[in-house]
Design a protein around this nucleic acid. Structure first.
Length: 824
DNA sequence: GGAAAGTTTATTTTT
DNA sequence: TAAACTTTCC
């Protein structure tokens, strides 16, 4: 990926456009025999077909959920290629995520006949930005070896900048400033362009200076942050007409996926590329869904999509409303929900597939979040028994703290699940440390990386010495590595520190030399060995150490797939994907945000309560717009389901450690009654309100207490349900798993009393424990054991039927004996 | 340099 | 409540 001089004439592509041979387009045509226009559009509906065939002029495709958006996008590209309208290298296709880019590549490959490598300009905004910036880096004062900093580096750098300004970095945190700068960059504002008010609001009015100093430091470090990957190209386009003209000449078609998620910077970047000065604009096609815009808080401007027709006069707007994913009930639920939003272009999904057996959307109430998790767990087990694939089931939550309860439940049930989202591989400490070593080798000016690892492992180069190196470097305007090398020759550092530093400097010199000659995987291994980094973890006897060493091994292995160390570093900076192993059949648990673009047969939406969903904070901070974004998020959730949708709300939920009583989300009441089935509690007693236990004494006032029920809520499913269950709470049987029933009852009663919640919880643990204690312990200290979720481990302590186990991978956990087996 | 005690703060996340 | 982060103390 490191700059090739030029990449558009592809191997096999002739100069003469009449005699194409070997290119993708040509291959596609050949594959189709003599037919001029391959029949890609055959299986498309009229609107999709229009979206594919309207290749000229600005086009906005409003593609509702499940209407074949990706299919349109990929077919459109295939169509452009096969009809000879453009070479692969003349098409710019941008996505937001690497996953989407990858998927598009694959699908175009399938359409066109072969895995294509010929779409050099298909990628994420950022990866295309990097590509452009590597080519023209010097125009903004960078070298083309520049490093891409991630959020962590960014914050560390900002901290230094704040301190250098003589500000208190407690009062003015780097994190806050990072947020501000990100916001400015999303709007494409440089230090000189930010509003005065913004500039004054931070750091005793020094906001602007800090931003400026940060940008200066980035250039000195030969580094960019994510925002710069778009802002630098924008600056280049604006200041160097010749460069922009080159891209104008190159691109004939521009396609943008998820247009509703673009921010101002991305919009400007696109517009610069799409609008030629002579008015013969590049053909722009944006695909998106205003109803699925859920990233406003991250700078996305729904307005971009709402304004499209004004921005690009004469635009063709095509609506895709025919849904191929969900049942009519689910679509009706989605439509009725989203109809409550004001700012939208307006679409209504429909399906032609009549399914008389289709189940209505099911609304369930539960007493609290724990019961919610338990009941959903049971429902999933029932589905499993019926032969449903766990892979086709998902639990989508508003906030990640909700996931824990499900996880705990699933571990107990031994139900395989996978959490999507969560901490990424490349964010782990050991990986970042290793990467820091590699970064210094690849780019010696990377002071942030250098600082990170000069004293890792500990070599006696403490804060004082690091500061000295830092200050020396700043004074001489040279990289810290250089400054360190100079200092070694002086008396400014002494003793052990001096010899350690000499070794570090010497090591980096040697590794840098080896960079061009040694295979990069081999080099990486020696770096980690010779630096003592591997030994550091080998010597560490904490639970995680073994796992960290494994991760390092994995890192080195992953490296082998890239052609050079630099290519690998770039991959890590830009493609922080989580690989999910689809081979295992497991329930997916994830946030609604990460569910966008996915679909499942059965979807559970727990936590449908005012304050959680819609989230209180969105409403407080975003007002009406905030609420509408929450509703779009709910819409995204609903439209993920193909056949079954289960909506849950609990009457009580623990928020910041305090039990709060909650009321059903207004979104529940916005569902159409005809398509909803309010579920009776068959084996549990849900219900709204603490009414069954008399007054809500003991909990303290909930902030939801003051809220009025919404609209005509009394006739609504949520409310009816609530009324019915009000008084059932103490009666019903708990038909759960053996041993648990009793405990639940105890717990439930416990909740009725002030502070009973905690006690109930505790009691449950005890009871569960007792119910299985009859069998004598099968394991004792030091035994090797296997756990379905945590893998192999060694028993560290036995306490009744609860064992403390040091798992090789997962660390120390307390688990029930019954979930342990002998290894092997 | 590290353990212990105290303090703070609790959406959503990609690149 | 509980996890992350800071400060304090040896």
């Amino acid at each position: 990926m490191i700059d090739l001089p030029d990449d558009w004439p592809l191997p096999g592509e002739g100069q003469n456009s009449q005699t194409r041979s070997g290119g993708i387009a040509a291959r596609a045509m050949a594959a189709r025999g003599q037919q001029r226009a391959p029949d890609f559009v055959a299986g498309l509906n009229a609107e999709q077909r229009l979206a594919v065939e309207t290749t000229e002029g600005p086009v906005l495709v409003l593609a509702g959920a499940g209407t074949g958006k990706t299919r349109v996008l990929t077919t459109r590209i295939a169509h452009i290629l096969s009809s000879g309208k453009a070479w692969p290298s003349q098409i710019l296709a941008v996505t937001f995520t690497n996953k989407a880019a990858r998927e598009m590549k694959e699908r175009i490959g399938l359409l066109v006949g072969e895995q294509i490598e010929g779409m050099p300009w298909l990628g994420t905004f950022h990866s295309i930005g990097v590509k452009m910036l590597r080519k023209h880096a010097e125009l903004v004062g960078l070298k083309n070896t520049f490093t891409i900093l991630d959020t962590d580096d960014q914050i560390r750098l900002l901290k230094q900048v704040i301190q250098a300004e003589g500000l208190d970095d407690k009062r003015w945190t780097a994190k806050t400033l990072a947020g501000l700068i990100d916001g400015w960059k999303n709007k494409a504002l440089g230090p000189d362009a930010i509003p005065e008010g913004d500039a004054r609001s931070f750091g005793n009015g020094k906001g602007r200076e800090l931003y400026r100093a940060y940008q200066r430091r980035l250039i000195e470090l030969n580094a960019t942050d994510f925002g710069d990957l778009l802002l630098h190209p924008i600056a280049i386009f604006r200041n160097h007409a010749d460069v922009l003209a080159e891209y104008h000449r190159r691109f004939r078609y521009i396609l943008v996926d998820e247009y509703q998620d673009t921010n101002v910077a991305q919009y400007l970047w696109l517009r610069l590329l799409a609008q030629r000065p002579d008015g013969s604009d590049v053909n722009l096609c944006c695909v998106g869904d205003d109803d699925q815009s859920i990233y406003g808080w991250r700078g996305a401007e729904v307005d971009n999509i709402l304004r499209f027709e004004k921005d690009f006069p004469g635009a063709t707007v095509i609506r895709l409303e025919r849904n191929y994913r969900s049942t009519e009930h689910i679509l009706a639920a989605a439509s009725s929900l989203i109809a409550n939003n004001e700012s939208r272009l307006g679409k209504t999904l429909f399906t032609d597939i009549a399914d008389p057996d289709a189940e209505r959307v099911k609304v369930h109430a539960s007493w609290d979040s724990e019961e919610e998790a338990r009941a959903i767990g049971e429902e999933i087990e029932a589905l499993q028994t019926k032969g449903e694939k766990l892979n086709d089931i998902a639990i989508l939550v508003r906030a990640s703290f909700q996931m824990r309860e499900f996880e705990e439940r699933f571990v107990t049930l031994g139900l395989p699940y996978r959490v999507i989202g969560g901490p990424r591989f490349y964010e782990r400490k050991e990986i970042r440390d290793a990467m820091a070593y590699f970064r210094v080798v690849a780019q010696p000016a990377d002071d942030l990386a250098f600082e990170r690892i000069v004293n890792v492992p500990k070599r006696g180069i403490g804060d004082t010495s690091v500061r000295l190196i830092h200050d020396t470097a700043r004074a001489r305007q040279c990289p810290m590595l250089q400054a360190a090398a100079d200092l070694v020759g002086t008396d400014e550092v002494k003793g052990k520190t001096r010899s350690s530093l000499r070794e570090v400097v010497e090591n980096f010199r040697r590794w840098s030399q080896a960079l061009e000659s040694t295979p990069h995987v081999e080099l990486a291994e020696s770096i980690l060995e010779e630096s003592g980094y591997i030994d550091m973890w080998k010597a560490d006897k904490s639970a995680e150490a073994a796992g960290r060493l494994d991760n390092l091994k994995e890192l080195i292995e992953a490296m082998g797939e890239y052609e050079s160390l630099r290519a690998f570093l770039e991959h890590v900076a830009l493609v922080m994907d989580n690989s999910d192993d689809a081979e295992i059949d497991a329930v997916s648990v994830m946030t609604l945000h990460s569910a966008k673009g996915l679909e499942f047969d059965t979807v559970f939406l727990p936590g449908m309560e005012e304050g959680l969903f819609p989230h209180q904070r969105s409403m407080d901070e975003g007002g009406r717009a905030g609420l509408e974004e929450e509703r779009r998020l709910a819409y995204v959730g609903v439209t993920r389901a193909r056949r079954n949708l289960h909506i849950w709300f609990a009457s009580n939920r623990r928020i910041h450690g305090l039990w709060q009583s909650t009321i059903p989300s207004r979104f529940v009441d916005e569902l159409p009654e005809a398509h909803v089935e309010v579920m009776e509690a068959s084996n549990s007693y849900g219900g709204y309100g603490a009414g069954g236990f008399g007054e809500r004494g003991g909990y303290g006032a909930s902030r939801f207490d003051r809220m009025e029920p919404f609209g005509s809520s009394y006739g609504s499913p949520g409310w009816q349900r609530a009324q019915r269950n009000k008084n059932d709470a103490t009666r019903e049987n708990w038909g759960g798993r053996s041993g648990m029933g009793v405990s639940s009852r105890v717990e439930r009663i416990g909740y009725g009393e002030p502070e009973g919640g905690r006690r109930g919880r505790h009691i449950e643990g005890e009871l569960v424990a007792k119910s299985v204690t009859d069998t004598p312990n099968r394991f004792s200290n030091g035994d090797r054991v296997f756990h379905l979720k945590f893998g192999n481990g060694t028993v560290a302590a036995v306490d009744g039927n609860k064992l403390t186990v040091d798992f090789d991978k997962a660390g120390q956990k307390r688990v029930l004996e019954s979930f342990l087996n002998p290894p092997g």
